[in-house]
Amino acid sequence: MDALKSAGRALIRSPSLAKQSWGGGGRHRKLPENWTDTRETLLEGMLFSLKYLGMTLVEQPKGEELSAAAIKRIVATAKASGKKLQKVTLKVSPRGIILTDNLTNQLIENVSIYRISYCTADKMHDKVFAYIAQSQHNQSLECHAFLCTKRKMAQAVTLTVAQAFKVAFEFWQVSKEEKEKRDKASQEGGDVLGARQDCTPPLKSLVATGNLLDLEETAKAPLSTVSANTTNMDEVPRPQALSGSSVVWELDDGLDEAFSRLAQSRTNPQVLDTGLTAQDMHYAQCLSPVDWDKPDSSGTEQDDLFSF
């Protein structure tokens, strides 16, 4: 819950932080000083300027060897085509990944977070970031790969997607708890209302004896509580940590079903599988986004697919 609360507080303090972009060759504004600060901008989305290598189908939802083989196929196909790589912007948030063309600003792909089953910074092609997700059109699994400016960037994108998945799962947990509370309150309110109706004398007997209905007592009954809980029953509950912020979080049926399955089948359902080692994760978390744009010590960066 700490990640969720800190993310909400950060967004309320400075929503404009989320509009910064990394990996864009110096076009961005001043960047936060450390990885923790940038992680807090996830709610509205972190932007990464990358190059799209392509996509291939895979048979399993996750796995280092599986993704490595898929990336190898994608890279080989991209090299064989001889075409310049498409420059894209990857927007990562707890909602998922939005992929747009840098030149036309046209939407290429919009992947809900619950469809993503794996992401990684490839070991062999260490400047490549990739994720595996279920197609929104059918049940097939797709591996999408992107060329980053350097290994640090690939690791940073991988960690960002993993963190977005974690925050999304926490949102789901909060929403589920809130819905259970509202359902319980609604049920209790309905029981109270039913009890009051059972003990209320029939209207005919009131008229016969000349008694008047006590409207004041009726007004004191917990009807307002019942209506408050039943009027918006169809509205999706939102985490309290975000009250007053500009973010509107809505959970669709697909996300609810997917996270429910994860909660039942996995020990740590909030953790998205990645190909990063503990050492890689520690190294990337210690980086400032400013470091992502620094040239690798191995030599001059080449803006070309064939540089790796």
Rank of each mutant, 00 (worst) to 15 (best):
L4S: 03
A7V: 12
A10Q: 15
R13H: 13
S14D: 13
L17V: 13
A18K: 08
Q20M: 08
S21W: 00
G24A: 12
G24P: 09
G26V: 06
L31M: 13
N34V: 13
R39C: 13
F48H: 04
S49Q: 09
T56C: 09
L57T: 00
V58W: 14
V58G: 15
P61L: 10
E64N: 12
A68Q: 04
A69R: 13
A70H: 13
K72T: 04
R73K: 11
V75G: 03
A76Q: 09
A78G: 14
S81K: 12
G82T: 05
L90A: 13
V92M: 06
L99N: 08
T100K: 14
D101R: 15
D101L: 09
L103M: 11
L103E: 07
T104Y: 03
N105G: 01
L107E: 09
V111T: 12
V111G: 09
Y114T: 06
C119T: 05
C119D: 08
T120K: 08
K123T: 14
K123W: 12
K123M: 14
M124W: 06
H125N: 10
K127M: 08
Q134Y: 12
S135C: 11
Q136I: 11
H137W: 11
N138K: 12
L141D: 15
F146I: 14
T149Q: 10
A154V: 07
Q155V: 14
Q155A: 12
A156W: 12
V157R: 00
T160H: 08
V161S: 02
A162G: 10
F165H: 05
K166D: 01
E170I: 01
V174A: 00
V174T: 03
S175E: 00
S175K: 02
S175W: 02
D183V: 00
G189D: 04
D191L: 12
V192N: 11
Q197P: 07
L203A: 06
K204A: 07
L206R: 06
T209K: 09
G210R: 13
G210T: 09
G210A: 04
N211W: 06
L213N: 00
L215I: 15
K220Y: 02
K220P: 08
A221Y: 08
L223H: 02
L223C: 10
V226L: 10
S227H: 06
N232Q: 05
E235M: 02
V236S: 04
P239I: 04
Q240N: 01
L242Y: 05
S246H: 02
D252K: 15
D253A: 02
L255M: 03
S260N: 10
S260Y: 00
R261Y: 08
S265D: 07
S265F: 12
T267C: 06
P269M: 01
Q270T: 02
D273L: 02
T274D: 04
L276E: 05
T277Y: 03
A278V: 14
Q279G: 00
D280W: 01
D280C: 10
H282S: 06
D293E: 15
K294G: 04
K294F: 00
D296S: 08
S298V: 07
G299V: 02
T300D: 03
E301T: 03
F306R: 00
